[in-house]
């Protein structure tokens, strides 16, 4: 009896593990239309080709970090760094995280000059919009703030990726993120910068059962896995928009 139990337990365990493994490899799948790279990251291309190094700054708010002792290593900026190192060996990758919680796009836009001076990044990933949606900031003000922030970075010669909100089904009826993500898309188009559509990507994962984003409880594993996938998806956007596939294929050979 005991052996049967142990065997059953082991089998179950194995199945769960295999399932988790399958989920890990398959979960991050994103269709092409959600990662578009029509706008080129020229400074990134130059830095990778000539200097063999890439300095990236993530400027954002609470959804760019994870709490807890293993938070910093599991949040998407660290996962992005790991993914890029893997994809682009021979290139020195550094991702710094400049996160301050509860800041609006306007607050973050104001800090952009300092970011450029202090960190001298080749690329700034600007994650914003959630606090603006919570506080119901006027669309016009939000747009001006985005525009100014991107302009400041572009004037300093820094490449920019705009990153919109998370898909959070439980708070959907309380936080209307739609208009804000529309505005971010418009600014990204007008300023010719890539938009990392975190909202669309996470919604895709949720709709296709990759992740249960409806989960209410304290589930660190889910958060870590989602952030890992986001980090990898940004790495893909950077490689494609920076036209770094050549470096990547050279590395594979």
């Amino acid at each position: 009896m005991r052996t049967i139990c142990t065997a059953a337990l082991a089998a179950t365990f194995w199945l769960v593990l295999a399932g988790a493994q399958a989920a890990l490899t398959g979960a991050c799948a994103i269709p092409d239309y959600l990662v578009t790279s029509e706008y080129q990251l020229k400074r990134v291309a130059l830095a990778a080709e000539k200097r063999k190094s890439l300095r990236i700054a993530v400027v954002g708010t609470g959804s760019s970090i994870l709490a807890g002792p293993d938070g910093p290593g599991s949040a998407y900026p660290a996962r992005l760094e790991a993914a890029l190192r893997k994809r682009l060996p021979g290139i020195e990758i550094k991702v710094v995280t400049l996160v301050r919680t509860r800041l609006t796009a306007l607050d973050l836009a104001r800090s952009m000059r300092r970011v450029v001076e202090d960190e001298k990044p080749d690329l700034v990933i600007w994650q914003t919009g959630t606090i603006d949606a919570i506080r119901r900031i006027d669309q016009e003000e939000f747009k001006i703030a985005l525009d100014r922030g991107v302009e400041r970075l572009q004037k300093a010669g820094t490449d920019v990726i705009l990153m919109n909100m998370q898909y959070s089904p439980r708070t959907e009826s309380m936080i209307a993120v739609g208009p804000y993500s529309d505005t971010m898309r418009v600014v990204a188009q007008q300023r010719s910068v890539p938009l990392f559509d975190r909202l669309g990507i996470m919604r895709y994962w949720s709709d296709h059962g990759a992740f249960d984003l409806y989960a209410a409880g304290r589930d660190n594993v889910l958060a870590h896995r989602v952030h890992d996938c986001i980090g990898r998806a940004i790495a893909r956007l950077i490689v494609e928009s920076g036209r770094l596939q050549q470096i990547e294929s050279r590395a594979i050979k």
Partner: peptide, 14 residues
């Protein structure tokens, strides 16, 4: 009272 998903800590600012 019921929602405590660490992934959405920022959204909880509502």
């Amino acid at each position: 009272r019921s929602f405590d998903n660490p992934l959405f800590a920022e959204e909880m600012n509502i």
